[in-house]
Computed example of a mutant assay.
Amino acid sequence: MASREAQLRELRQVKKVGRDTAYKLLAAGYTLFRLSNAEPSKIAEILGCSNKAAQEIINDAKSKLHAGEKLGEPLTAKEYEQFLKKRIIWFSSGSNAIDQLVGGGFRSSSTVGLSGPQATGKSQLILSTIVDCICNKGKYAMLIETELDTFDPLRVEGIARARGLIDKYDPDKLVVVDAYKVRDVATQFYYYELLRDMARDNKWDVGLIAVDSFTAMFQRKFKGREMFTDRKRELGRHLSFLEDMAKEFNAVVMLSCQVIEVPVSPEESKGGMDVVRVRAQFGTPYMPWGGHILRHTVGTWLSLEKGRSKNIWKAYLFDSSRVKLGECYFQITEKGITDVPEQLLKRLPS
């Protein structure tokens, strides 16, 4: 991560930002990058200036940040297809059924949302994909844990061992921010920046970036309807940054998300979403918490639920612009996420 002195120098390049102003901005947590994406009202409050003056500072920060960048030329559909063939890397979940459901695996330069109640396999799906990222692709994986006791390094090692990949597993390629460090949405965002800077400085070949759970801190901070606007703005800021990381490192971003329950009947919902409508849209009686800004921004959505049979889970692909929506069964074993044996699969409802 850039030193404090380097961050101050960057800020002082911005018009109307002198030494004292740079110190104020940095003390409030604003680097050049964060300043370029800031809300004018926030900067005006920190600096004691008008919104117009704050907007001028933000605009100049944007120009300084992107100085010297060359924007690419538009491509034809054929050229873009060739570009994707060279660029895209596919990461396996450990289950052929899930990989086929999402079009061949989780692809790099994309975002994946995993929703579902507790104990439906969201964290296990992330850990299984991390093993493929490190052992089979030889890349770094980054994980931000926001809830205590959801990540265990021995579980990742155990999955690699059970799959016969322990010789290829390098724990130094798994960079973890544990839940003891993530106290709120602000520190969660701070660690995006820190991990990005660490990857740049150390020239890590990053393949996967995961936040488990992405929405936990948001649920604690934004509790009432009067906070919807602020919640939407902050979600957009986080998602925009993570999308930029996915593009910069050609990595897949995986976000586990909590869900909300809905009224059982149309009468109880009073014209809103009821269980029938939610199941038709999301595959389960639950919908991801976070509203439209989250559901629209994330490119691929899987909704997970516990099956009726022992040790059987179900995944629903309820949103993807690339492949047909559908569903499949999977298991959670010592190998992580795996396929259901064929004999058992035949006895399950289609």
Rank of each mutant, 00 (worst) to 15 (best):
F91L: 14
G103D: 13
Q118M: 07
G138D: 11
Q100P: 00
D99G: 01
I98C: 10
F91E: 06
G103T: 09
L84K: 14
K122T: 05
S108A: 05
D99W: 05
L143E: 05
Q100G: 06
V102F: 04
N136Q: 14
L101R: 02
G104K: 13
M142S: 12
A97L: 11
L143G: 01
S93V: 09
G116W: 13
I144K: 01
C133H: 07
I144S: 00
I134G: 05
V102E: 06
S109Y: 13
S115P: 08
K85S: 14
I98D: 05
S108L: 08
F106C: 02
S108E: 10
C133Y: 05
V102Q: 07
G103H: 09
C133P: 04
I89D: 00
L84N: 06
L127F: 15
I126Q: 02
E145R: 01
Q124D: 11
C135V: 09
G113W: 06
G103P: 04
G105R: 08
G113P: 01
T129Q: 08
A141D: 09
V131G: 03
T146A: 01
R107N: 01
L84R: 15
E145F: 01
S108M: 11
L127P: 00
I126D: 02
Q118P: 13
G104E: 09
E145K: 01
N96W: 08
G121L: 13
M142G: 11
V112S: 02
L84Q: 12
C135K: 05
L127Q: 08
S123K: 00
W90V: 00
K137E: 11
K139Y: 03
N96R: 14
T146S: 13
A97F: 08
L125F: 15
G138E: 07
T120Y: 11
L143M: 13
G104C: 11
S115R: 10
I130S: 06
S109K: 15
T146P: 01
M142K: 00
L125Y: 07
D99H: 02
L127W: 09
R87D: 00
I98W: 12
S93N: 09
I126A: 04
L125R: 11
P117S: 13
E147M: 13
S92A: 07
A97M: 12
L84A: 01
D99M: 01
S95R: 10
S108Y: 04
L84G: 00
S93Y: 10
T111E: 06
S128G: 13
I130L: 08
Q124N: 09
K86I: 03
L114Y: 06
P117Y: 04
L101W: 05
F106V: 08
I126C: 03
L127K: 09
R107I: 03
K85M: 14
K86M: 02
I89E: 06
K85C: 10
L84F: 03
Q100L: 12
I134F: 07
C133Q: 09
F106M: 14
N96Q: 13
R87M: 13
P117I: 10
S92Q: 11
W90T: 09
G104P: 03
I134W: 08
R87K: 15
V112E: 00
T111C: 07
C133R: 07
L127S: 00
A141E: 05
I134A: 05
D132C: 05
T111V: 01
I88N: 09
Q118L: 06
W90K: 14
S93T: 15
T111I: 04
T111R: 12
T146K: 03
W90H: 15
